[in-house]
Amino acid sequence: DDKDMQKATGVLDSYGIRHLCIGKPQDERALLLTHQDKDYLLFIDYLRDIWFESSYLLDRKQSGEACAKKRFLNYKKQPIRYRFPKEFKGTLNSYGLEADRRKPTGIKAAIIREKGVNGDREMAYSLYLAGFDVKDVHMTDLTSGRETLDDVNMIVFCGGFSNSDVLGSAKGWAGGFLWNDKAKAALKKFYARPDTLSLGICNGCQLMIELNLINPEHSQKATMLHNDSHKFESQFIGLTIPENNSVMFKSLSGSKLGIWVAHGEGKFNLPEGMENYNVVARYAYRSYPANPNGSPDGIAGIASADGRHLAMMPHLERAIFPWQCGYYPENRRSADEVTPWIEAFVNARRWIEQHKK
């Protein structure tokens, strides 16, 4: 506005910098240019379509006509909208957290890694910030028997490309558990305990589905399929958290939040019927590209029937701070220290504090 203009020009004048006003912001999505006594009205949405058309023509060769056309038609129809939890204050203090904590809390979480996993650092920090003492466990620790998971209450399978996804996403990683007696026994014992939680993100989600850790009671095992676009999808999208009974996401029910996705095989194939799954996260829009993989009903994450074990494709650990987000509401961008995603990790720690044996 004029007040801001005066302030800006005042600063320039104070330093003796010559300046010229060449434009002013306006509410309409159009640019009005004046040159040599002629006015030119340029409509932004129309120009965006022209700019995007080249990408669409190239995308047809990668994704095929159907997905490329959907991306071209929907990119401007799928805005990311936020709806924050009612009690969310955006501060570390509101959760009783300290960023510089050095004393152990006694609540242990283990990050389980395999060759090619790359999301362990962000996940370790998210857990640490939420009050966990974080332990690094490589698959060789489990297969050799050096690690038994007896002293941890939460395990996390991180995202990445385990074994380069050579045999399919997480197939080789799953084999490390299925065909090694020590690793298999440690995992089975962990899931048999009533005081444990687990989380699988992206490649970790694919692993949990492959090992049937979410719904072992089902006669038909769920699977993860290639994205409908037949290519790796990486973007910042909107996620909706429905009413659910999961440990980590229950308090976020009704929220709409932004989050990152980065995967090639993220489409849930749920053979038992939707009513038999505990859906804890859905993409904000059912159509591509906001639904990046074509999952039925926009499903992005599911939990076990008791809510203790959660598998999801999007990366909440990559969006715990506003500055990590591709978009965050302007009125909260500077004020919030953390996003609501940190609450999921805090919920996990608090549950363990109440149920730890």
Rank of each mutant, 00 (worst) to 15 (best):
P314M: 11
I259M: 13
A186I: 13
G200M: 04
E243M: 11
F268I: 01
L211F: 14
G298D: 07
P271Y: 04
S255C: 14
S229R: 04
G301N: 03
S251N: 14
Y277V: 09
P322C: 13
Y283K: 03
T223G: 10
P296W: 02
N227L: 06
A284W: 03
M224K: 01
S219K: 15
G294Q: 00
L316V: 12
D195K: 10
L211Y: 14
G266K: 00
K256C: 14
L310S: 00
A222L: 07
G238T: 03
A222Q: 08
L213N: 03
D228C: 12
P194R: 06
S246R: 05
S287I: 13
R318M: 12
A290H: 09
Y283C: 12
G307L: 07
G258Y: 06
L310R: 00
G238F: 06
R282S: 08
Y191L: 12
N278I: 13
D228V: 15
Q235V: 09
H263R: 08
F190M: 05
R282P: 13
Q324W: 04
L211T: 09
L316R: 08
K250I: 05
H309M: 06
N293R: 01
F268M: 04
S287A: 15
E217R: 04
I299F: 07
F236E: 01
W323Q: 14
Y277R: 08
I209A: 05
I209W: 09
P216D: 02
A290G: 04
A300W: 11
L252Y: 08
T196S: 03
N227Y: 11
L197C: 05
V261H: 03
S253Q: 07
Y277L: 10
L310D: 01
G258F: 07
L270R: 01
K256Q: 15
F190H: 09
A319R: 12
I237G: 02
V279C: 10
M312T: 00
G298H: 05
N244E: 07
E217H: 09
P314I: 07
E272Y: 11
A222Y: 03
C325F: 03
N244Q: 04
Q206L: 04
T240E: 15
A186C: 13
F321K: 15
S255P: 07
H315E: 02
V280N: 02
P314S: 08
E243R: 09
P242E: 02
F190Q: 02
H230K: 14
Y191S: 02
A311L: 03
L199T: 01
A319D: 10
S198F: 01
A281Q: 04
P242A: 02
M274D: 12
C325S: 09
F268S: 01
S246P: 12
M248E: 14
I299G: 04
S246K: 02
L197D: 03
H226S: 14
A303L: 05
N278M: 10
S295P: 12
M208E: 00
